[in-house]
């Protein structure tokens, strides 16, 4: 009798302890998790219309920004032309209403595609549209690829503006940010270099050559990216890239662009051949194959061979 009581008591104690500890654990976990709140920025002139706004007679905004970057809305009159271009180049995947539901759902090639498999374009902002089209990534070579590849653009700059105007016309207010135009005069190279190392080098590498990220994605090379596309990418965050709005002001973005289009794209190699900017991998290869290899051949030349 006392033995069974003890057994029962031990069992109850165990259950109570487990319950209590899990309760404490969950309470602790709930307390530790940060509260979700919508993202807001109080940073002045960070890609959002809060400075030097140009308001038209009908009340619409066409441009905002400052001396560093001016954001302009594509003319609404272009939307009609954009509609036709959109239908031929974009609608197959993004859908007739640009909401990411493909137009040809009945086509067997799109049998596995459901709503949400393709990005919703409504309200993305003209800067994002311009980035994807002018960098040749859209229309995509294959819609199901992990990452769209940079190619020679299929649409011209004006045609891209027309598509952006059409997508803007689908929502009540056009999405942000507008098409940026960066003015590199007066930018600081050293601030740009420092900000580049802090914000960009972790993926694009310090020499701007880009590198592989997880699961088949990669940070593309920055060698041949025009200035405005760099701004568009920073402000809209295409693909895996984070969207930098609150933490970088327009002046800071201008400095980064100045460094990228200056020293990253035209690196000074006073030490001789740049070896592809690959760092110690290429250096080790040259040091072993050329340096040690040549000297082994020299030894072979100087010494006896049998």
């Amino acid at each position: 009798m006392p033995l069974t009581a003890l057994k029962n008591r031990t069992a109850w104690m165990l259950v109570t302890m487990i319950l209590a500890s899990s309760f404490v654990f969950f309470i602790g976990a709930a307390g530790a998790s940060p509260k979700e709140s919508p993202y807001t920025t109080s940073r002045y002139n960070a890609g959002t219309p809060n400075s030097s706004i140009v308001v038209n007679k009908d009340g619409s905004i066409t441009a905002y920004g400052n001396g560093a970057i001016i954001y302009t809305l594509p003319k609404t009159s272009l939307a009609a032309l954009g509609q036709a271009l959109y239908a031929t180049n974009c609608a197959a995947c993004h859908g007739d209403k640009a909401n990411g539901v493909p137009a040809h759902s009945s086509d067997p090639r799109y049998a596995n595609v459901r709503a949400g498999n393709y990005p919703n374009l409504r309200g993305v902002g003209s800067a994002a549209v311009m980035f994807w089209i002018t960098s040749g990534r859209m229309p995509a070579a294959a819609g199901t690829n992990v990452q769209a590849v940079r190619r020679p653009p299929r649409l011209t700059y004006t045609q891209a503006l027309e598509v952006a105007a059409y997508i803007d016309s689908l929502t009540k207010t056009p999405g942000l940010p507008y098409v940026p135009n960066v003015n590199l005069k007066g930018g600081s190279l050293s601030t740009g270099a420092s900000l580049y190392a802090l914000n960009c080098a972790a993926c694009h590498t310090i020499t701007g050559d880009g590198d592989a990220l997880a699961s088949g994605t990669y940070a593309p090379s920055l060698r041949n990216v025009p200035a405005n596309q760099v701004v568009e990418a920073i402000r809209t965050g295409p693909g895996n890239m984070p969207r930098f709005t609150g933490n970088l002001s327009d002046r800071q973005v201008r400095d980064i662009v100045k460094y990228v289009t200056g020293y990253i794209q035209h690196p000074q190699n006073p030490g001789g051949l740049g070896l592809g900017g690959l760092g110690p991998v290429a250096e080790g290869f040259v040091g072993l194959a050329l340096g040690v290899g040549l000297l082994c051949l020299a030894a072979f030349w100087v010494g006896e061979r049998q």
Partner: peptide, 26 residues
């Protein structure tokens, strides 16, 4: 003729900064 370790491109060390694709010497 062959550039090695271009430290001017790398910039100064700050613990909060990092570059991808860096390896040690071979």
């Amino acid at each position: 003729f062959a550039q090695i370790n271009p430290i001017w491109q790398f910039g100064p060390y700050d613990p909060e900064k990092i570059s991808y694709a860096v390896q040690p010497d071979w």
